[in-house]
Amino acid sequence: MGSFNMITILWSAVLQTLAMVGISVVIAQVLGMPLGVLIVITEEGHIVPNRWLHRILSTTVNIGRSIPFIILLVAVLPLTRLLAGTTFGTKGVIVPLTIAAIPFVARVVESALKEVDPGVIEAAQAMGSTPMQIVYKVLIPEALPSLVLGFTLTAVNLIGYSAMAGVVGGGGLGDLAIRYGFHRKQVDITWYTVIILVVLVQLLQMLGNWVAKKLSH
């Protein structure tokens, strides 16, 4: 295989990985964030304590988090077909990736919001804030740097998961490594994908840290 050809193949795999991870992480954040917020604010002593809702949500998230991704990948195949129209390729991987990331996001959001100084929440309550105002004007802005770091963590995790998706022909760097490196014994391709993954994660983490730092006053 010519080096030009190899670069094209690697580049298109990088783009596929970025697309899979990018789309899943955004959808997971949008769906997982309200879950995390609800878990925090329904806790005993928080702004809208509700023991049952808290337990149900928390348990659901725990169950979701304990299912290994590789099993989830197969288990949600029917749903994937329904939502994405296919179970194969990049499109087919987005559904399981997103589902795997939602409980992860919920936990990450939960731990970020729990760091918010209870005194500040109390001050907001003393000023007559509604629970919604506390969420949007206090909890989220105060936790924003931690939320950004959490978002980065989720994305890094999804890069790892997306590589596993290669097993079911999901496309991207993982798929490439398996198809060329494993089945066709082109070990150099495997090495390149690993290096690219390391660099990708490194860059992402640096970006996340930088944004979080910019946001904290």
């Binding site: 309550q125 003393a126 000023m127 007559g128 904290s216 006053h217």
Partner: peptide, 18 residues
């Protein structure tokens, strides 16, 4: 509504850092 007519200040100030 009633709380809006009752101001409060705190030992540790409790300002929004953001």
């Amino acid at each position: 509504e009633a709380r809006k007519c009752i101001g409060m200040i705190f030992q540790h100030f409790n300002l929004l850092a953001s």
